[in-house]
Write a protein that binds this DNA or RNA. Structure first.
Lengths: 208, 208
DNA sequence: CCAAAATTAGACCGGTGGTCTAGACTGGTG
DNA sequence: CACCAGTCTAGACCACCGGTCTAATTTTGG
């Protein structure tokens, strides 16, 4: 976990480190990113870096968490999905997804970071960072799933973990494809609609 | 590409190298596997290794290709999917998938290898090996998709690349989940049925 | 039999993530 | 002021990585 000493740093130096790390991780992914380059770019020494962070994964987790928090702040919280009926559920989800993708195409470095995250997730040294980030994202997915089950928007004949695995995998691959497409902004809603339609067909309740 | 010199080696030494590499790659994935350990385990020198193979990715590709060939030999070729109707298409695919998964649970090292492949696919140094292997697997998927379109088993309102991305992503995630489940052999058919059902709902034609 | 070619051994290279020590700075106390 | 404990920094150092290279050895063929 990031050391408390880091928080005491002047804001500008925190920014310098964070920016250097973001640049490096976004450009090279987790594994191929070089801590030495980050250190040079940030203008600090190795000793200091390891005084602020446990290790490479810790730095990555910190950067990802910080940037993610910024994204969520920008996009807003996920609305309450459990209020209406199944159609509302899916339409709310689609809206939110669209907003997320819009924000991500506006922040390509963060998008690259998340892509790299998916790629690096299976890797022993990354496990600790993985666990930390998952504790923030998985409950999120669980809540959505629960809400979906409650309003009958999600099928009940498949074990929930399998549903989650399927949706996450599909989502990851599709995100990758969407980003690689560099779809124009006006095509995005149509594509998202297709995508959510596929997900809904796969995991949606009987009526859909 | 693997050098012709390798083929001239006594079969037992080829086996030793292949086995050492398989052990290492299956245990640690592509990135975290150590060529030095492979060399030690195989009892050859670095010079020889680089005399037989271009680089690490080349060795990986060779191992994967060889093991994969063994798997396909065991499971048999994919049957002709374009002969019957949509239901036949999906049922043939389900059968084949089930046989594949059975063979994979019987060969856990190969399963680990393929899992690691997916994880390492995005990585600059892996690109060459990736390209070589994809030229064998992608046409395979394309053919299946084409057959599916022909018999009306696959929806036509989604761009094919998006379909492929979705199915591959879903498949990858689900495979991972199935393996992690260590499902008993008698549960497997039921799970596969659920899985193929999800895929069919997502990408299947109107009637299904 | 010997030269040329094929093959092997392993030192070596620049790089990696991570550790460690020597010292610079700081604030508090006699 | 002097001293000192605690905090922080610089960068040498470590083991290891994938990959290169050269010198020696073995095999081949005329």
């Amino acid at each position: 976990m990031v050391r408390p000493q880091f928080a005491k740093l002047p804001a500008e130096q925190q920014q310098a480190i964070l920016q250097a790390a973001l640049n490096e991780f976004a450009a090279h992914g987790f594994h191929d990113a070089s801590l030495n380059r980050v250190i040079d770019a940030a203008g600090i020494s190795k000793g200091s870096m390891y005084y602020y962070f446990d290790d490479k994964a810790d730095l990555y987790a910190y950067v990802a968490r910080t940037e993610l928090a910024g994204l969520i702040e920008q996009v807003g919280m996920l609305p309450d999905l459990g209020a209406g009926d199944a159609d509302t559920f899916w339409s709310l989800l689609e809206d939110y997804y669209l907003r997320l993708m819009r924000a991500l195409t506006a922040a390509p470095q963060l998008a690259a970071l998340l892509r790299g995250w998916a790629a690096a997730a299976r890797s022993p040294e990354f496990q600790s960072a993985q666990a930390a980030l998952e504790q923030e994202s998985v409950p999120w997915v669980m809540l959505a799933l629960e809400a979906g089950l409650r309003v009958g928007a999600v099928r009940t004949d498949v074990p929930p973990p399998l549903l989650i695995a399927a949706v996450m995998g599909m989502g990851e691959a599709i995100d990758l494809w969407l980003v690689s497409q560099q779809a124009k902004d006006e095509e995005l809603p149509e594509l998202i609609k297709l995508v959510m339609g596929m997900i809904r067909r796969a995991v949606g309740g009987d009526g859909a």
